[in-house]
């Protein structure tokens, strides 16, 4: 009952809904970076929506099935192939023992999710099967997958079947240019009014080093900070603060040059001023941005952020209903 890694891809890991509750001791949430596509993948194969799946990043792996299974692929647009024959995305299909599942390159999007009926049955660590690479625990032996790894597969539910389909309107959008909504704070007041205007006016491109820890953006104008005498404990650079906790989605701008959005493998605190936070409803969009994809930051207030969160939840409920 295993699936074997023939080619590992670039950064392929086991992820689930994540590991909340330990950020105060420096252990981040982790979990699938695009939670929407992750949940869709599980629902397509009749899994509990929080079951562990394979997250593929930028370059997908090649898998050998040692067991027959129902599989679904969501997220990035990379055509799945069983023994070379193209298979649909966003739709469950059957593979037989001995079949090879490979993928074309990712035409659009940055992360694909492969759900297998029964889930990937790696050990639960602190309530989650998610890999936390920096901490070297969770997932499969605490690391990204490598050639020859054999992933244990759990027992499929009796609702697992081929041909369950997500309609196009419910699939994750994969635009090359997107808007990311930002709630300004906690240190927004530290940048000048002109810099604040520039930040929201400029188009920012994803830097090639963007990963699960942080998404770095470039090509916008550098930020200017308001004059102040740096307080005791803060570094000398004006982008420094006295160390503080970093929320998920918070935007730090080291040296005022390249904004970094912290994602689900974030460090929990540090000494860079956070000028705002990406709203929770837009975090999945970041997960699907390839290097050089473009973003504009759009300023919202708390009411708008909560309304967007409501819309996100309503859309997720539509998926649950459609795939029940």
């Amino acid at each position: 009952m295993t699936v074997e890694i023939v080619k590992p891809g670039l950064a392929t890991t086991i992820q689930d809904a994540g590991r909340p509750g330990y950020y105060n001791v420096g252990i981040p949430l982790s979990g699938a970076l695009d939670q929407y596509s992750f949940r869709c993948a599980n629902l397509l194969v009749g899994n509990d929506e929080n079951a562990a799946v394979i997250e593929c990043t930028l370059l997908a792996p090649e898998l050998l099935f040692n067991v027959s299974a129902i599989v679904a692929v969501t997220g990035a647009d990379a055509t799945p192939r069983v023994n070379g024959s193209p298979m649909p995305r966003n739709e469950s299909f059957a593979v037989k023992a001995g079949d090879k599942l490979s993928f074309d390159f990712m035409r659009l999007g940055a992360r694909g999710y492969v759900a297998i009926a029964g889930g990937i049955d790696v050990p639960v660590i602190l309530g989650s099967r998610s890999t936390y690479g920096l901490g070297a625990f969770g997932g499969f032996q605490g690391r990204k997958l490598a050639v020859g790894d054999k992933l244990p597969i759990g027992k499929a539910s009796n609702t697992a079947k081929a041909g369950r389909k997500l309609t196009a309107d419910l699939a994750m959008p994969l635009p090359k240019e997107t808007e990311l909504r930002v709630l300004p704070g906690l240190y927004f007041h530290r940048i000048t009014d002109a810099s604040a205007d520039n930040f929201f006016a400029d188009t920012w491109a994803v830097a090639p080093e963007a990963d699960r820890i942080g998404y770095r953006y470039k090509q916008g104008r550098p930020l200017q900070w308001r004059e102040r005498k740096q307080p005791f404990g803060a570094g000398s650079d004006p982008s420094n603060i006295v160390d503080a906790g970093y929320p998920y989605g918070s935007i730090q701008v080291p040296g005022g040059v390249e904004p970094i959005i912290l994602h689900r493998d974030a460090v929990s605190g540090g000494g860079y001023a956070m000028i705002g936070t990406i709203i929770s409803a837009d975090m999945d969009k970041i997960a699907q941005m390839q290097p050089n994809y473009k973003a504009r930051f759009v300023r919202v207030d708390m009411d708008q952020a909560l309304a967007a969160r409501g819309d996100y939840k309503a859309r997720m409920d539509r998926v649950r209903k459609a795939l029940a």
Binding site: L10, L59, F105, M106, P208, Q290, P291
Partner: peptide, 9 residues
Amino acid sequence: VLSPLPGTF
């Protein structure tokens, strides 16, 4: 020869 992934060549 096609690039298998995005990045810097």
